[in-house]
Design a protein around this nucleic acid. Sequence first.
DNA 1: ACCTGAACACCGTTCAAGT
DNA 2: ACCTGAACACCGTTCAAGT
Lengths: 196, 196
Amino acid sequence: MDVKTSLSATDWAQAALDAIADGGIEAVAVEPLARKLGVTKGSFYWHFQNRKALLKAALEAWEQQETTDVVRQVEGIDDPRHRLQQVFRVANSGFRNGRLTGVFAASSSDPLIGPVVERVAKNRLDFLIDCYAALGFTPEDARRWAMFAYATFMGTLQLRSDDPTALPRGRALNEYVRLCMESLIPARTESERRRA
Amino acid sequence: MDVKTSLSATDWAQAALDAIADGGIEAVAVEPLARKLGVTKGSFYWHFQNRKALLKAALEAWEQQETTDVVRQVEGIDDPRHRLQQVFRVANSGFRNGRLTGVFAASSSDPLIGPVVERVAKNRLDFLIDCYAALGFTPEDARRWAMFAYATFMGTLQLRSDDPTALPRGRALNEYVRLCMESLIPARTESERRRA
DNA sequence: ACCTGAACACCGTTCAAGT
DNA sequence: ACCTGAACACCGTTCAAGT
């Protein structure tokens, strides 16, 4: 791969997302970002009109990543049970994406951020509902399950915001996924359970 | 009354609350506040260590006002029905207090603000529960009513944040209060209703 | 006890000039 | 097309000096 000789708006947006992931919204500051990118802050204003425009671009990039891109990672998996498991694993792997969701959700009172958070949440919820429906649940039960799973996910994000390293891994992650798939409603028949 | 010759920490905290009410949390800025108070920003640092300490003081003042002070306005009213009506009227009169509640609630993800918002909410809820209980409701119904009333209040705040002048007044306020007191559960006996 | 004035660091924004 | 460099406004913070 060749060395980047000049930056694009996308580069700035990604740098902004990185900054948000470990410093919150206020970490989107032109001068520090320019420093990190190795250019002067003056150059920023060739790509964007102002700081707000950068935040907007970052939000757009995030929405893109969190909808089409993430779904694409698992939509190839035909077995709905396996697909759901993968969704939970992907969603809980790596800090960055979880941190971003957490930060944006916490800032959803901001008129710039709120609508994006809502769209992303609805998108995820719909995807989960489809998965559970494909598992054989009635529409209402699929909805209940999806809400439970999403709420659980958001809740673990909240807990992690205190201790960013405390994301479920290994055995804990397996327990977590199992909980999201079979604790409240008997998702398998007895014979299925014996086979597992 | 005599002319104030020098400022106190309380004066700064109140000025901060005024600023928050019409500009949000970020409007708590030392230099603009100093300008408004007619002093140089240097003098601020005699009263507070930094901006954060001022925010903290403002939050404390708000919590004080919104708990003991507001309750004191209506606790003298013996008839629980009348007392409740007054609470709703007081809570919905004037922008400032409502705006403050709205802004703080929207910023409750801030670790400095969240705990205060929670305490104030619990306090108000408990007060409402007591009122409804005194009205003769069972503990569970009193709780349900109090939650409904408080949620309705918070919801109207949310709506108002778009149009700050749109707070219920006159006939609308009467309707609002009536809704909070008698729409879901028959709060009065038939004979009471005929008397009204 | 309370405030001024000047200083410094830091960030947002603009813009002419460079390649 | 993308960036530098310098400028300006604005805000947080410090501190010696004033009353």
